[in-house]
Computed example of a mutant assay.
Amino acid sequence: MNLTAIVIVAIVCWAIVELVNGPKGKKKDKTSNEQAALNKELQSEIKTMRERIETLEKIVTDEKYDLNRQFDELKKDKVA
């Protein structure tokens, strides 16, 4: 084989590899964009849930909440 044939074969092989790998590279970018969007969505959902949990903790630790619970328990004891 002469040098020209080797170069032509190398170029053809390189072109085939690029054609095969080309769409996969674009697909990875699309997947990473989708994952980034999902990540942001989940982070905002976690932030919302943390705020709700903080509110619930404030309600549960409030003295009035405990007092109302105790009154409810006394009412249940009177009925029974």
Rank of each mutant, 00 (worst) to 15 (best):
N2T: 03
L3Q: 08
T4Q: 01
T4F: 03
I6L: 12
V7E: 08
I8R: 07
I8S: 13
V12L: 05
W14Y: 05
A15M: 11
I16S: 02
V17Q: 07
L19I: 08
L19F: 11
G22V: 00
K24S: 04
K24R: 10
G25K: 14
G25A: 08
K26L: 09
K30C: 04
T31M: 14
T31Y: 08
T31D: 12
N33Y: 14
Q35D: 06
Q35A: 15
A36M: 00
A37S: 15
A37F: 13
L38T: 08
L38F: 04
L38P: 07
Q43W: 05
S44H: 02
E45A: 15
I46H: 15
I46D: 12
T48M: 05
R50I: 06
R52P: 02
I53H: 12
E54C: 02
L56V: 00
L56R: 06
E57W: 01
E57F: 00
K58H: 06
I59V: 14
I59L: 10
D62I: 02
E63W: 15
K64D: 08
Y65V: 07
Y65H: 12
N68R: 01
N68L: 09
R69H: 11
Q70Y: 00
D72Y: 11
D72Q: 10
E73T: 06
E73N: 03
L74A: 12
K78Q: 12
A80W: 05
